[in-house]
Amino acid sequence: MRGLDYKWVEALEAVVVQESFERAAQALFISQSAVSQRIKQLENFLAKPVLIREQPPRLTTAGKKLMGLYHRVQLLESEVLPELTNQPNQRPVRIFIATNADSLATWLLPALAPIMQERKVEFNLSVDIEARTIEKLKKGEVTGAISLEPEPIPGCVSQYLGRMDYVCVANPEFAKRYFSKGVTRHTLKHAPAVSFDQYDEMHQMFLKQHFNLSPEVITQHRVASSEAFVNLALLGVAYCLIPRLQIAKELEQGRLVDLMPGFLLSFQIYWHHWQLETGLLQEITQAIVDYSSAQLPK
Rank of each mutant, 00 (worst) to 15 (best):
I30R: 06
I30K: 02
I30C: 08
Q32T: 07
S33P: 02
S33M: 13
Q37Y: 04
Q37W: 06
I39V: 03
E43F: 00
F45N: 14
L46I: 12
L46C: 07
K48Y: 09
K48D: 11
P49I: 04
V50T: 13
L51W: 02
L51F: 01
R53G: 12
R53N: 12
E54C: 10
P56D: 12
P57F: 00
R58Q: 14
L59G: 01
T60W: 00
T61P: 00
A62Y: 06
A62I: 04
A62R: 10
A62P: 02
G63T: 03
G63N: 05
K64D: 01
K65L: 08
K65S: 13
L66M: 11
L66Q: 02
G68D: 11
G68P: 03
L69A: 03
Y70V: 08
H71I: 08
R72D: 14
V73R: 07
V73T: 03
Q74E: 14
L75I: 12
L75K: 12
E79I: 04
L81V: 11
P82M: 11
P82A: 10
E83H: 14
L84D: 06
L84I: 15
T85S: 11
P88I: 05
P88F: 03
Q90Y: 03
R91W: 08
R91P: 01
V93W: 01
I95N: 04
I95G: 07
F96N: 02
A98Y: 00
N100Y: 06
D102I: 13
S103E: 07
A105N: 09
A105Y: 01
L108T: 01
L108M: 08
P110A: 06
A111I: 03
M116R: 15
Q117E: 11
E118D: 13
R119N: 07
K120F: 08
V121S: 09
N124S: 05
